[in-house]
Simulated scan of single mutants.
Amino acid sequence: MRRRRAERELGQEGLAHQCGTNRTYLSGVERSERNVSIDDIARIAKGLRVSAATPSEE
């Protein structure tokens, strides 16, 4: 998530705004401190403009 966010030149605040959530929550997700619901995965994927259904290729 952090890499995709950086590729899009978004800060946590900007991505949080696009996802309709707050920066603190996204920070916890990036650090694997949060359990993420499928709905939040879909919102984050939409904010990053990636598919939530397919893993990204490294």
Rank of each mutant, 00 (worst) to 15 (best):
M1Q: 11
M1K: 00
R2I: 06
R2V: 07
R2F: 10
R3G: 12
R4E: 15
R4W: 05
R4N: 14
R4M: 04
R5T: 04
A6M: 14
A6T: 13
E7W: 04
E7D: 15
E7M: 10
E7R: 07
R8W: 13
R8C: 13
R8T: 12
E9K: 14
L10P: 06
L10M: 15
L10Q: 09
G11M: 02
G11E: 10
G11P: 07
Q12K: 15
Q12R: 11
E13M: 01
G14T: 06
G14S: 09
G14Y: 03
L15W: 00
A16N: 04
H17D: 15
H17C: 01
Q18D: 14
Q18S: 03
Q18F: 13
Q18K: 15
C19A: 14
C19L: 07
T21Q: 00
T21L: 04
T21Y: 02
T21R: 03
T21K: 06
T21A: 11
N22W: 05
R23P: 00
R23N: 07
T24G: 12
T24S: 14
Y25S: 06
Y25W: 14
Y25A: 07
Y25E: 10
Y25T: 15
L26E: 04
L26A: 09
L26C: 05
L26H: 10
L26G: 08
S27Y: 07
S27W: 13
S27H: 09
G28W: 06
G28L: 09
G28N: 11
G28D: 10
V29T: 04
E30I: 04
E30T: 05
E30N: 05
R31T: 10
R31L: 12
S32K: 11
E33Q: 14
E33W: 01
E33L: 11
E33A: 09
R34P: 01
N35Q: 11
N35A: 13
N35T: 15
V36R: 07
V36G: 05
V36H: 06
S37C: 09
S37W: 00
S37H: 02
I38W: 03
I38T: 14
I38L: 07
D39G: 11
D40C: 00
D40Q: 11
D40V: 13
I41D: 00
I41W: 12
I41M: 10
A42R: 12
A42Y: 08
A42M: 03
R43K: 15
R43L: 13
R43T: 01
I44M: 07
I44W: 00
K46T: 08
K46Y: 02
K46M: 13
G47P: 01
G47W: 00
G47Y: 10
L48E: 09
R49S: 14
R49Y: 02
R49F: 06
V50D: 03
V50G: 12
V50H: 00
V50K: 00
V50L: 03
V50C: 13
S51D: 09
S51L: 03
S51W: 00
S51E: 10
A52R: 01
A52D: 04
A52G: 01
A53N: 13
A53Y: 15
T54A: 07
T54N: 07
T54L: 13
T54Y: 08
P55G: 09
P55V: 08
P55A: 14
P55I: 08
S56L: 13
S56D: 06
S56N: 04
S56W: 09
E57R: 04
E57T: 09
E57Y: 11
E57A: 09
E57L: 06
E58G: 14
E58N: 12
